[in-house]
Amino acid sequence: MSAVVQLDAIHKTYESSEVPVHAVRGVTLSIAAGEFVAIMGASGSGKSTLMNLLGCLDRPTQGRYLLDGTDVAQLDRNQLADLRNQKLGFVFQGFNLLSRTTARENVELPMLYGRRRFTTKEIHDRALQSLDLVGLRQRADHFPSQLSGGQQQRVAIARALINEPQVLLADEPTGNLDSKTSVEIMGVFQKLNAQGITIVMVTHELDIAHYCKRNLIMRDGRLVSDTAVTDRLNAAAEMQRLLAAEAEAKLTA
């Protein structure tokens, strides 16, 4: 399979403080289409910086980053924005939905900023399609405040998917959710991955990483481990198990 993400000895140094902070020190990484990667590491290990680099929110100070064959280092602010818009989808820990804006309108947002012009109807239809993928079509006209945490995160996923990106980037997508809802979200990810979407996520929870196909561990700005997941968890099965346990707890109570 061809590599969607190709990192070549990537460095990132922040010069803003008195002592330059060397956050990422030479990461070389290749992620092929259809992969499902979890990046783990302690705080300060550079995983968030790596995520920002992968997400084209920031440019590397050294090294080469090819996203779907495009060298990111050469692009200006607006070209990076277009790249994010067309090739990447973002899911954040804090959902980052616009409040007082319906689920559908939140999902439409990336399409509004696309360089291609769509009719209002096209945008509507695509947003509903995207919400369908995460099973929230019937909640299209709800506001984020009327949705549970898991539902909000699914809206965010639908937003990330609307422009049919090459890679879905998720930064601690289950960080704000309870364990059952976390399994629910991982189920959505596994389903999307099964449909061929490449997913890269940052997490610090080992059990969440077990739903992925490949685990990377970072320490002090370097990749120290890169393993394929052998005992991969299936979210659907886990959900069954959780529900059964819940039912049993109710019976005994």
């Binding site: 997400g55 929110l57 602010r77 607006n78 994010r84 980052n96 947002l109 900023y113 937003r159 422009n163």
Partner: peptide, 16 residues
């Protein structure tokens, strides 16, 4: 600020 951040992240140009 956060709203602006979201808009920029999903591809809004500064001009937008």
């Amino acid at each position: 600020t956060r709203e602006i951040g979201i808009r920029l992240a999903v591809g809004a140009h500064g001009r937008d």
